[in-house]
């Protein structure tokens, strides 16, 4: 245990996701010993990031303006909406450079244990969006775990009433991997989702 403000800072860093007590200590001492200009800049950024960053009113992604950069981009196909759980999922899909449509960020997945129900997610906005605009396809890209699947099932049921085609990302074998090393669940899913080639 350190004294006073040092320990306070260590505790504060330790509460951040992915940072354990040792890393928190390392970061704290790095800050204490580093040039004052660097630390001031970090402190300013921390203060302004909360003020400046908002959520896109259309898709729920992080943004510094009313609409996020993807929603503002006129070249994107507004007829396709990809539904994801978190803003970081948008970044992951953007890296593929294959999807040219728009996103909808739910802000999590249905999980009663964590106190998250459909009302806590951006679902009403999604429904409004689908009612207002011409959408050719909704792609559900929630995580392939229990909560993500449950969220996808919930949305599928909800979207049935709108007569919009809905698809779900495939799950199966990783590219570049060996079949023999795949676990049974993944291999089983790959069999279920197999494609007809001729």
């Amino acid at each position: 245990m350190y004294e006073g403000i040092i320990q306070d800072l260590i505790d504060e860093f330790g509460r951040l996701p992915g940072i354990g007590p040792k890393s928190a200590q390392r970061i704290t001492f790095h800050i204490v010993q580093s040039q004052s200009a660097d630390v001031t800049r970090l402190a300013e950024l921390l203060a302004t990031v909360r003020e400046r960053v908002r959520f896109c009113t259309q898709c729920g992604n992080v943004s510094e303006q009313e609409l996020c950069s993807i929603c503002r981009d006129a070249r994107r196909d507004a007829g396709l909406i990809c539904v994801v759980e978190e803003p970081k999922d948008v970044v992951a899909i953007e890296r593929t450079r294959q999807f040219r449509g728009l996103y909808h960020v739910l802000g999590g997945a249905i999980s009663p244990i964590d106190g998250v129900g459909p009302d806590d997610l951006n679902i009403t906005q999604l429904m409004r969006r689908l009612a207002d605009t011409e959408v050719r396809e909704v792609i559900l890209a929630t995580d392939p775990n229990l909560e993500g699947e449950a969220t996808a099932t919930y949305l599928t049921r909800l979207l049935k009433t709108l007569e919009v085609p809905v698809s779900r990302l495939a799950s199966g074998l990783p590219v570049g991997g060996d079949l023999e090393f795949a676990d049974e669940i993944t291999l089983g899913r790959a069999f279920e989702g197999r494609l007809t080639v001729s």
Partner: peptide, 13 residues
Amino acid sequence: ANQLSTLDVWDDR
């Protein structure tokens, strides 16, 4: 009525 709308989803699983 509102809360239980997700019950069906868990029932599936």
